[in-house]
């Protein structure tokens, strides 16, 4: 296995692991939203501005989870493509070797169609991989967008929390955990994008 293939395997595998971490964090946000909703309910009028925010956070978490689920399907297909490309590349290299060794053989020419076919299917895999990487990058961009939105909401929540009297501390804690979670998602997704961007135009 050459280094290019090896790092492609690693890149695809790392996406799956980063994404499963994103999933965990998104579920945390969703929990934080439920928690905030309960507090805001108890706080009544004092946390009036906070209530719509909790719904918004919850919605955001749900969307992120859906998005990551669909990205995972893509990541799996990228993995299968990588395996396929690896197989086709090995075959192509072996067929080239056959042509080299068999140059004096009376039927050497008959190796041309399989060689050509192997080359085409190897290249098809490579193109498909690039196309899927591009689509995956777009979806990751959407998750980044969600993470950024969550951070803005967290900042708003902090302001609203400051008006909530004795509930200030618990609401601030909610805002804090949303902010932290959004930050983690942002970082993880960013790492996925860096790992993949190598293959977009390579």
């Amino acid at each position: 296995m050459n280094n290019q293939t090896k790092s492609q395997f690693v890149a695809v595998a790392s996406i799956t692991s980063e994404l499963s971490a994103v999933m965990v964090v998104a579920k945390e946000i969703s929990l934080a939203a439920a928690n905030a909703k309960a507090i805001a309910f108890r706080a009544g009028d004092k946390a009036k501005g906070f209530q719509p925010i909790t719904d918004f956070i919850n919605e955001l978490a749900k969307e992120t989870i859906e998005l990551v689920t669909s990205i995972n399907v893509y990541a799996l297909s990228l993995y299968q493509l990588t395996v396929n490309e690896y197989r086709k590349t090995i075959a192509y290299n072996k067929f080239e070797l056959v042509v080299k060794i068999a140059k004096d053989a009376p039927y050497a020419q008959s190796m041309q169609p399989p060689l050509e076919h192997a080359k085409l299917s190897m290249e098809l895999c490579q193109r498909q991989f690039k196309r899927d990487v591009k689509q995956l990058l777009d979806q990751l961009e959407a998750v980044m967008h969600h993470a950024r939105a969550a951070r803005v909401i967290a900042a708003n929540s902090r302001i609203e929390a400051s008006q909530a009297g004795e509930y200030l501390q618990s609401l601030q804690a909610v805002a804090e955990s949303v902010d932290k979670a959004a930050h983690t998602i942002h970082d993880n997704v960013q790492r996925c994008r860096i790992a993949l961007s190598l293959y977009r135009n390579s």
């Binding site: 060794i101 068999a102 039927y107 050497a108 020419q109 008959s110």
Partner: peptide, 16 residues
């Protein structure tokens, strides 16, 4: 052994 074997077979028969 695939490549040397295939190359050797090409002395006796075409791939198809």
């Amino acid at each position: 052994l695939f490549a040397p074997m295939m190359a050797a077979v090409l002395h006796h028969a075409p791939v198809e």
